[in-house]
Each structure stands twice: as structure tokens, then as C-alpha cells.
Design a protein around this nucleic acid. Structure first.
Lengths: 211, 211
DNA sequence: GTTGAAATTAGTACGAA
DNA sequence: TTCGTACTAATTTCAAC
């Protein structure tokens, strides 16, 4: 249920094109903008805020849902109030060709909220929410360490979540998110040496799908 | 609007206690469980699925909202369909006592979906969604590098998002998420040496609040 | 793509268990 | 507290424009 679609993040992003489904115009984006702020708004109220008719709003709403642009509606819950006050990130190095097993084990860990495969020093990052720090420790040493696919882990704790946007959309803040090549100031006062881009570690190119 | 409440993640988690507001019983949790899967469900249908009366469902629903256990309702959007096919993590080292500035600058970057302050080698992790890899580059070198508070960055790309749960709740999978100390098998076949826990780097204890 | 009216459903209030 | 019912208000659907 929580297994989400492969999003092709590693492939080449085609700037202008919007997936393969319906073309999203600026009204579609505005609908998404309203909906990510208030997922329970009525379609009638949505229509008014977007500036279109009710019927049109229903049509577009359904289209966005059917197309998959809207994946689901969800409630954001306060983890602390829910009793899960500790959040940690665990960076995992996965043994080659054991990704399938790793994924399978992940699905069996309810405390994992998010898992992404990354380039860089580690292979995956998982975010867990638990009640106390001891639970993080037991999770890493008792659960993760028992997975043969896991070669090594590195755990850091989240001290504060500064920002969390429901979902980032293109055009937020009017600024086009494509690379505006202009680059007005070539690179005067920027200590570029301090900026590291970390590519895939070993030969992890073909690993995006399970092996 | 996206500035979320300090969640005290770094403090000591008190296992049994549920915040300071209302006590959440198992019915409250069940409501949250349904709501995080379908944020647009009607309260009538919610009542039925949870097994309580409509009136009761309305009362509890409002209580959860008022208490803050439910922070908001939102739509999950497919970033690829929305034209933001690239996701990256940027690990940032922040100059001491410039957190306030760093936070302020973050709020002005719409491509940032998430930012957390962490222990470990870096001070913060931010997740960005953009249209193409060039946008990541320009974001890091042109925007982040210009912030005096930013000492250094390290960028990795997300190749695939394996798992994304709307929100983790206690009791998911019946397993108590508190540390069950029993530890049946002391530590036989586990290569504990491979498991690293990374604490705060310098004297970053008091940095959870802006300085 | 829009408007308006009918049918359905949601939200509220209140008394009883 | 929780439930059940009746009442009111709103939303969704469907038709014609």
C-alpha cells in the first residue's frame, strides 16, 4: 500500500513535458496548490478559489485523480502527540544484488516513514519515527543488522524539522524551476569548492530497479 | 505557512505519554489511521469504518483537529507528473549562530520540500524537487552558496523513492515501538561494528532553537 | 465551459441510554 | 460519554444553455 511508483528521478528530466497523461495547465496547478493546503476542501469551494465553475472543477478534479497527478489525500499527524517523538535518519549501505530483499524487509517495518535510494556514499536513506532513542537503537541493531542485504548503517537524529511543505509544485513563488542558464554573475564571490556533488558510488547505475 | 512546530525530537521521548493535550485512546488512533489513508473520507463513512456513531466521530474528529494531533489535510501529488522529476538531498553545514538567517532564506526557496536539523557530520538536510539536474546545480551554487550562513554543502540525488508512508503511527503492525528491552539474543551474529550512531558534531546542543 | 435546479449527503442539535 | 434521530445546510449530480 505504501510502495510508491518509481518516479524516474534519476533519469533525464524533460523540463516542459508533464508526464504522459493529461497536460496540466495553470488551472490544474492552481487546483493542486489549493488541494495540498486543504485536502478536505469541497469541490464547490475549490471551484470558487480557483475561479472556475463547479462542473469544471469536478471534471478537472476527477481527471487529476484518474491521471495519478493526485496520488491520494492524507492527514498530517503530529508525531509527538501520537507518541512518536523521535525521528532518525538511517543511511544504509546495501549489498549488491540484494535490493529486492532489502525492499521486502522495509515493507515489514512500520516505523519506517520514508525510504529513498540515493547516490553518494550510502545507497539508501530511511527515516524512522519511534517513541524513544532506545527504539532507534534496537531497530538498527536488532532489525536492520539482521538483514543480510544491509552491509552497514549510519544513524543521525533529527533535532528539529524546520520546514515541511505538503508538496512542492512548479511555479511556486513564480520562479521557474528549470535551469535558467543565464547565470548573471559568473561566479564571483562563491566558494564553489565548498559545494560537493556526490554521484553514484560503485556501479550502481542499473540498481534502480530490483536486481 | 510551512513553518512547522518544533517537535522536540531531540528531547527525551516519554514513551507512554501522549503530548499534553487530550489522551489518545485506541479509537483516536484508529481514526488517524483511516484519515491518513483517505483524508477526504466523510465523517459518516469514518464513523462506520471505526465502529462508532456519527456524533461521536464528529466530536473526536474535531477534538483531534483542535488538539493539533491532526495538523492538516493535504493532497499527495505526483511530482513527476507535475513537472518536477528530480529530487535531491542537500546536506548543509551551517555557520554557528547563523541559524536564524538560514531558516529565513529557506522559507524563500519554494523548491525546498523538507528541511531537518540533524546530528552527525552535517547540520541540516534539505530535500528539493526541481525539473532537471541543472536546476539542482544552480540552486546549490547560486542560491545556497550565497547564503553566508551556509558553510558547505553536499548533494546527493534520489534515484528512487521506495517507500513513503503518509504518517507513521504507534501500533502499526501491532508491534510496540517502544524499546522492548528483553533482547532475546544478546548479540550473536550481528556485526555491530558496522552500525554507526553519529551524535552532534561540535557543541550543537543549544542550537535547536534559533540563535 | 457555464449556470441553475433536483437529489443526495453532510453537519448540527438535542434528548435518551 | 456515547448513541440515535430529526432538522438544517451544504454538496454533488445532472440537465439545459
Amino acid at each position: 500500500m505504501s510502495e510508491i511508483s518509481r518516479n524516474g528521478t534519476g533519469g533525464g528530466g524533460q523540463p516542459g513535458r508533464i508526464g504522459i497523461g493529461l497536460e496540466l495547465d495553470h488551472i490544474h496547478l492552481k487546483i493542486l496548490e489549493v488541494l495540498r493546503e486543504n485536502g478536505r476542501i469541497s469541490v464547490a469551494a475549490l471551484a470558487e478559489r480557483v475561479g472556475i465553475s463547479r462542473a469544471n472543477a469536478y471534471t478537472r478534479f476527477e481527471a487529476l485523480r484518474a491521471d495519478g497527478a493526485i496520488k491520494r489525500f492524507t492527514a498530517e499527524i503530529d508525531h509527538v502527540r501520537a507518541g512518536l517523538g523521535i525521528t532518525a535518519l538511517i543511511f544504509v549501505t546495501v549489498r549488491q544484488q540484494m535490493w529486492k530483499q532489502f525492499r521486502a524487509e522495509l515493507a515489514r517495518m512500520p516505523e519506517v516513514e520514508y525510504c529513498a535510494i540515493t547516490t553518494g556514499q550510502h545507497d539508501a536513506m530511511i527515516q524512522v519515527r519511534v517513541a524513544d532513542v532506545a527504539a532507534v537503537h534496537s531497530m538498527v541493531t536488532e532489525r536492520l543488522a539482521h538483514i543480510p542485504a544491509v552491509k552497514a548503517t549510519e544513524t543521525v537524529f533529527i533535532l528539529d524539522e524546520v520546514l515541511k511543505r505538503p508538496y512542492v509544485l512548479p511555479g511556486d513563488g513564480d520562479r521557474p524551476r528549470t535551469s535558467r542558464r543565464p547565470a548573471p554573475e559568473p561566479q564571483g564571490d562563491v566558494p564553489l569548492g565548498k559545494m560537493r556533488f556526490v554521484g553514484a558510488a560503485e556501479g550502481r547505475a542499473a540498481l534502480r530497479k530490483d536486481t
